[in-house]
Amino acid sequence: NQESVVAAVLIPINTALTVGMMTTRVVSPTGIPAEDIPRLISMQVNQVVPMGTTLMPDMVKGYAP
């Protein structure tokens, strides 16, 4: 099972992602793959992401799977 990126904290809208904001977990449905965390650093979320929420591609500005 592939791990997906999950919010480790509440991430406010338009916040640039940092390593500490993200964790990984096997979830269903799957979100952004864990191995993409290095690509996500400094990208901004386009909505509020509650802690424990799986990051989906459409939540991150400029992210393309």
Rank of each mutant, 00 (worst) to 15 (best):
N1T: 14
N1G: 07
N1C: 06
N1W: 03
N1R: 02
N1A: 13
N1Y: 03
Q2L: 15
Q2V: 12
Q2H: 10
Q2P: 09
Q2F: 10
E3Y: 07
E3W: 03
E3S: 04
E3R: 02
E3A: 05
S4F: 04
S4C: 03
S4L: 02
S4H: 02
S4P: 00
V5R: 00
V5W: 01
V5F: 01
V5P: 01
V6I: 13
V6M: 04
V6S: 04
A7Q: 00
A7I: 02
A7L: 02
A7M: 02
A8S: 11
A8W: 03
A8H: 15
A8E: 07
A8N: 07
A8G: 09
A8Q: 09
V9Q: 12
V9W: 05
V9D: 06
V9S: 14
V9R: 12
V9N: 07
L10D: 10
L10I: 15
L10A: 11
L10F: 13
L10Q: 15
L10V: 12
I11D: 00
I11Q: 00
I11V: 06
I11E: 00
P12D: 11
P12M: 05
P12F: 04
I13C: 04
I13H: 13
I13L: 10
I13N: 14
I13S: 06
I13W: 06
N14V: 03
N14Q: 14
N14I: 02
N14Y: 11
T15F: 08
T15H: 13
T15E: 10
T15S: 10
T15N: 14
T15L: 13
A16K: 07
L17F: 02
L17Q: 00
L17K: 01
L17H: 00
T18V: 08
T18E: 04
T18N: 11
V19P: 12
V19Y: 11
V19T: 12
V19G: 08
V19C: 07
G20Q: 11
G20I: 12
M21A: 06
M21H: 11
M21K: 06
M21I: 05
M21P: 01
M22D: 02
M22C: 03
M22E: 02
M22P: 01
M22K: 01
M22A: 02
M22V: 09
T23W: 09
T23E: 12
T23P: 02
T23L: 06
T24G: 12
T24H: 11
T24Q: 11
T24R: 08
R25V: 11
R25A: 13
R25K: 13
R25D: 13
V26M: 07
V26W: 05
V26N: 07
V26Y: 06
V26H: 09
V26S: 12
V27D: 15
V27G: 04
V27E: 07
V27L: 06
V27I: 08
V27M: 13
S28W: 03
S28Y: 08
S28N: 10
S28C: 13
S28A: 14
S28Q: 15
S28H: 06
S28T: 11
S28F: 09
P29D: 15
P29R: 03
P29E: 06
P29M: 04
P29A: 07
P29K: 07
P29F: 05
T30V: 15
T30N: 09
T30H: 15
G31I: 04
G31F: 02
G31C: 03
G31L: 02
G31R: 03
I32P: 01
I32C: 03
I32V: 06
I32T: 02
I32K: 00
I32S: 02
I32M: 04
I32A: 04
P33T: 06
P33G: 07
P33Q: 06
P33R: 07
P33A: 08
A34C: 05
A34V: 14
A34I: 06
E35P: 10
E35T: 09
E35N: 06
E35A: 06
E35G: 09
E35F: 05
D36A: 11
D36I: 07
D36T: 09
D36C: 04
D36P: 00
D36Y: 09
I37K: 08
I37D: 00
I37C: 04
I37E: 04
P38A: 08
P38Q: 13
P38W: 05
P38M: 13
R39C: 04
L40A: 01
L40M: 06
L40W: 02
L40T: 02
L40R: 00
I41Q: 14
I41Y: 09
I41T: 15
I41L: 15
I41V: 07
I41R: 12
S42P: 03
S42Q: 12
S42T: 14
S42W: 14
S42E: 13
S42I: 03
S42N: 12
S42K: 13
M43T: 15
M43G: 12
M43K: 13
M43N: 07
M43Y: 11
M43L: 08
Q44V: 10
Q44N: 13
Q44H: 14
V45G: 00
V45Y: 00
V45E: 01
V45I: 11
V45C: 03
V45S: 06
N46C: 05
N46D: 07
N46P: 02
N46A: 09
Q47E: 11
Q47D: 08
Q47R: 12
Q47V: 12
Q47K: 11
Q47L: 08
Q47N: 13
Q47S: 14
V48I: 15
V48H: 06
V48M: 11
V48E: 08
V48K: 08
V49C: 04
V49K: 01
V49Y: 01
V49G: 00
V49A: 06
V49D: 01
P50M: 11
P50Y: 08
M51T: 13
M51Y: 12
G52A: 04
G52F: 10
G52K: 06
G52I: 02
G52P: 01
G52T: 11
T53C: 03
T53Y: 13
T53S: 08
T53Q: 11
T54P: 11
T54Y: 04
T54R: 03
T54V: 10
L55I: 15
L55P: 00
L55S: 01
L55N: 01
L55D: 00
L55W: 00
M56A: 06
M56Y: 09
M56E: 05
P57K: 15
P57G: 15
P57W: 11
D58M: 13
D58Y: 10
D58I: 13
D58A: 12
D58L: 08
M59R: 02
M59F: 09
M59K: 04
M59W: 04
V60G: 01
K61L: 08
K61D: 15
K61H: 13
K61I: 09
G62W: 07
G62A: 15
G62F: 06
G62Y: 10
Y63F: 11
Y63M: 13
Y63Q: 10
Y63I: 09
Y63H: 05
Y63P: 09
A64H: 12
A64F: 12
A64M: 10
P65L: 02
P65W: 02
P65F: 02
P65N: 09
P65G: 12
